[in-house]
């Protein structure tokens, strides 16, 4: 077991910590950075609950080691709302469309949708749904997620 010093940006703030080589990014964000909104649903890359944005790309934080995030910029669901509490467009669409129940899958879903729509990008509804096929939700039957996808794609906006 070896320890490594890493420096990165998490939700806009600098973080500098020593991590074990075997620690996943997901564990590090939860235990080392207080980002408990990063949920670990399977820890084998299937459920998508752990998704965060690393340097602009949606990433499964259970499949990436913390050391690999050295020097990167990481965004979690805890870093999306405005300082005054205004929800991001993705978060607002999810709320408007009742796209969550227990909320466990939700931060991951939000991060994938956020990465797809970043910088004003308008993916098609089909593209958003295709990306959502990498997320498991056991509560909603994806109904609200489909509606939120449509809204974000601008079809029914």
């Amino acid at each position: 077991m070896s320890d490594h010093k890493i420096r990165l940006t998490v939700d806009g703030g600098p973080v500098s910590k020593t991590v074990e080589a075997r620690q996943t990014l997901g564990e590090f964000l939860r235990d080392g950075c207080g980002r408990t909104g990063v949920h670990l649903g399977c820890e084998h890359g299937v459920c998508g609950a752990c998704t965060v944005i690393v340097d602009g790309k949606a990433v499964r934080s259970c499949l990436m080691l913390a050391v690999q995030a050295d020097g990167t910029e990481v965004t979690t669901a805890q870093g999306l709302a405005a300082p005054d509490g205004t929800l991001s467009p993705v978060q607002q669409a999810m709320m408007d469309e009742h796209a969550l129940q227990c909320g466990f899958c939700t931060p991951g879903v939000v991060m994938t949708m956020t990465a797809l729509t970043a910088g004003g990008a308008r993916p098609t509804e089909a593209e958003i749904k295709a990306a959502m096929s990498g997320h498991l939700c056991r509560c909603t039957g994806y109904q609200g997620i489909m509606r939120a996808a449509r809204k974000l794609a601008g079809v029914n906006a």
Binding site: R35, G37, A77, Q78, M94, M95, H98, G103, F104, P107
Partner: peptide, 16 residues
């Protein structure tokens, strides 16, 4: 009615 629960859950501030 939009759910009271959703704000904390969407912002990663749930308490599981």
């Amino acid at each position: 009615v939009p759910r009271k629960e959703d704000r904390r859950l969407l912002t990663g501030n749930g308490a599981y």
